[in-house]
Simulated assay, not measured.
Amino acid sequence: MITGNKGEWSEIYALFKLLGDKQLFLGNKDIEKLEGLVYPIIKILRTENNGNFEYSIQDEIILVSGDEEVLKIPISDFKDKALSLLNAIKQNKERTFSVPEIEEFMQSINCISLKASSSAKTDITIVVHDQRTNQQPTLGFSIKSQLGSPSTLLNAGKTTNFIYKINGSIQPQEINRINSLIVKRGKKESADLKGRVKAILQNNCSLDFYKAQKPIFSNNLVLIDSLLPEILSQIVFDFYSSEFSHLTDLLNKTADKNPLNYDIENEHKFYEYKIKRFLTDVALGMMPSQVWTGIYDATGGYLIVKENGDVLCYHIYNRNEFEDYLLNNTKLDTASSSRHGFGEIYEENGELYFNLNLQIRFTK
């Protein structure tokens, strides 16, 4: 029996839906269809444990081929199964669940697992016809679903910690008090991170960016833009010291402060441009723990499975729409401070430091 969560089942839904629609619809920053812009789909490629399979679209028939075997499946079957699966995903309240009727159909078309075995960021590979260039590129897409919990764009870890030096003096007793500040949500207790930052500032101290905790992440950021560690450290600090969490709000706040003293007399969008570059690189391949070469893994972009069942494409050909989507639909989120080692004042070589963590999640 195949079981999975809503996000995992959404990958199979996207496969069925795209084969049923026979085309990719492009989306804008508000996750709505861009009218008149579509890519006809020629075929979808999928790697399973038992081989490589092609789902080729020919009129109203899908040809499923792998090794010798060729199956002919009516497109109406994919449309019907997509609708059934969408309803099953929406109605299910369990964290993981099975859909026997869909599993039976999956096995009949050599689709034996929820996640195609592929590289880290690519969930589905599609060959499209690009009418502008008259070419047929093979594009890898990462699938993000709005049917389940909002997914993360940048996962938290010690790899995404920023270290701040505390300038000013705090008495040991006060340090213990600050480090013990907690917040209660129902029966759960967690570190009061915003309260701790506020308490440090109330002791007439400042939190000044020192460095990113891990050199690989720091150098990945510098590769994208030499001043990106400083820009992100300001955004992270503003998240933990204000009411803002949406990236657009935090970015505007940083741009207003202009901490790097850019020449903004002619209204150059320095901060927005650099953060969009960062978000795009994260979306298409950059991971904090691995050396980033600048080579995109998901060569196509993102597919978004909307709550209403539409599947929208954000393509790096349409880079402006893709960047606007990423910026407008993400927020900073608080990860576990105990697991990732941040949120407590500590001393090293007679100096006080405080770590804050960067995690970016989609808003929908």
Results as ranks from 00 to 15, higher is better:
R95T: 13
G309P: 00
P150E: 10
H246N: 13
N87C: 03
E267D: 14
D225Q: 11
I143L: 11
H315S: 09
K81I: 01
F16K: 01
D238W: 04
L260P: 01
D225C: 06
Q107Y: 15
Y262F: 15
G285S: 12
T133A: 05
E101P: 02
S118F: 12
Y302T: 06
K22S: 14
S65A: 13
D21I: 05
L114D: 08
I175V: 14
F239L: 00
N5P: 09
I275K: 07
M106E: 00
E189F: 12
C313V: 00
N308M: 07
E307R: 15
L227F: 10
S119Y: 08
N252D: 14
S149P: 10
G4D: 10
K17D: 01
F217E: 00
I200F: 07
Q135S: 13
M286F: 11
L312D: 03
S206V: 06
Y314F: 15
L114A: 05
F362P: 04
A14H: 04
N266F: 14
I170C: 07
Q213R: 08
G4F: 14
C111M: 05
Y346P: 00
M1H: 11
L207R: 01
T293Q: 12
T152K: 09
L303P: 05
S84I: 14
T133Y: 06
L153A: 10
I61L: 12
L247C: 09
C111W: 09
V99F: 03
E351T: 05
L358V: 03
K211C: 02
N266Y: 15
N50A: 10
Q131I: 09
S10T: 07
S142N: 11
L332Q: 04
A14N: 07
G343H: 02
G341W: 05
L358D: 00
N266D: 11
A335R: 00
R339F: 08
E307W: 09
R319L: 15
N176E: 15
K22E: 10
D208M: 01
F141D: 00
R277Q: 13
K364G: 13
F244T: 00
T248M: 11
S119N: 15
A82C: 00
Q213E: 11
Y39R: 01
I75W: 01
L154M: 13
V222Q: 06
F97T: 05
Q202S: 12
I124H: 01
N52A: 13
E69F: 08
E344P: 02
K257R: 10
L45E: 11
N28F: 06
I295A: 15
G27I: 02
T122R: 08
W292I: 09
K184P: 02
K214L: 12
L153C: 10
N355W: 05
